[in-house]
């Protein structure tokens, strides 16, 4: 029993190490054979790699041992027909879409909360703030992405509940993204597209999948396999919109302020 528990604890560590090993092999291979330059601050880099591996292993172990089981249990409970209050009654075997209001709220809240804790998003946000010399604030970017994921998941849950086709939503979403791309400040476009791929990672995917599976297996006529995929597509599409929108609003505010300033100057 003790050995088993110990093994279960070291599993994320080994998983992270096998994840990192090929990367390190490639980095060292090119550094030694092609670039032929010594790595600056080698000690610091090695320490940093150890911190990355140990940190990620702790992070994943903590999520798997405590947060995921509870989150998955809640997703299952919230989508349970008994909780939605339609047991036995023949006329109400299929709930009205408004009956799922707690599920929408849960999707919104959990989408926002898991995105704020997503390590890859933290990394991209730190870089964005550095590179833009502070014009793109790391905190603001992460909030924008989190709001995007939250809205995306809520709409995704609504889609599963109503059973409307996935591609209508996705194609409409692509159209909105294209329109926004045409009007948004150029400096944000690539970053916004990147934030779509970054959100579906360590923290968000397992909980979102649990929500999708819970919902689609409790509503008659939904396929758990198909609808679980749908939610992740929503979670990577909507952050693109919200980040583009965040930049558009920021640009608009700067423009209005500048205009107010010149007006004041003209008056005085």
């Amino acid at each position: 029993m003790d050995l088993q528990r110990l093994l279960a604890w070291t599993e994320p560590l080994f998983g992270t190490i096998t994840d990192v090993l090929p990367i390190i092999a490639i980095l060292i291979g090119f550094q030694v054979m092609v670039l032929r330059r010594p790595i600056p601050n080698l000690g610091r880099v090695v320490l940093g790699l150890v911190l990355v591996v140990v940190g990620l292993a702790c992070f994943i172990q903590g999520l798997q041992s405590a947060l995921f089981p509870l989150g998955k249990l809640m997703a299952a409970q919230l989508t349970d027909p008994a909780f939605l209050g339609n047991t036995g009654d023949q006329e109400h075997t299929t709930a009205h879409w408004l009956d799922y209001h707690w599920v929408y709220l849960f999707a919104f809240a959990i989408g926002f909360a898991t995105t704020i804790a997503e390590p890859s998003l933290i990394a991209v946000a730190i870089k964005a703030q550095q590179v833009s010399a502070g014009t793109i604030a790391a905190g603001g970017l992460r909030l924008a992405v989190a709001v995007g994921v939250a809205i995306g998941l809520t709409i995704g849950v609504f889609r599963i509940v109503t059973g409307t086709p996935l591609h209508y939503y996705i194609i409409a979403g692509y159209c909105v993204v294209l329109l926004q791309t045409a009007f948004a400040p150029r400096s944000i476009v690539a970053l916004a597209y990147d934030s779509g791929g970054v959100t579906t990672s360590t923290v968000t995917v397992p909980l979102v999948a649990a929500l999708g599976i819970g919902l689609s297996s409790n509503i008659p006529g939904r396929d758990p396999l198909l609808d679980g995929f749908g939610l992740i597509a929503f979670a990577s599409l909507f952050p693109i919109m919200s980040v583009l929108g965040y930049a558009q609003i920021g640009a608009e505010i700067t423009r209005l302020r500048a205009r107010a300033r010149t007006k004041r100057r003209q008056e005085s």
């Binding site: 610091r44 880099v45 090695v46 320490l47 940093g48 790699l49 150890v50 911190l51 990355v52 591996v53 940190g55 990620l56 992070f59 390590p119 933290i122 990394a123 730190i126």
Partner: peptide
């Protein structure tokens, strides 16, 4: 992890 990110 965030420390390792910045160091390595």
């Amino acid at each position: 992890f965030v420390q390792g990110l910045k160091l390595a």
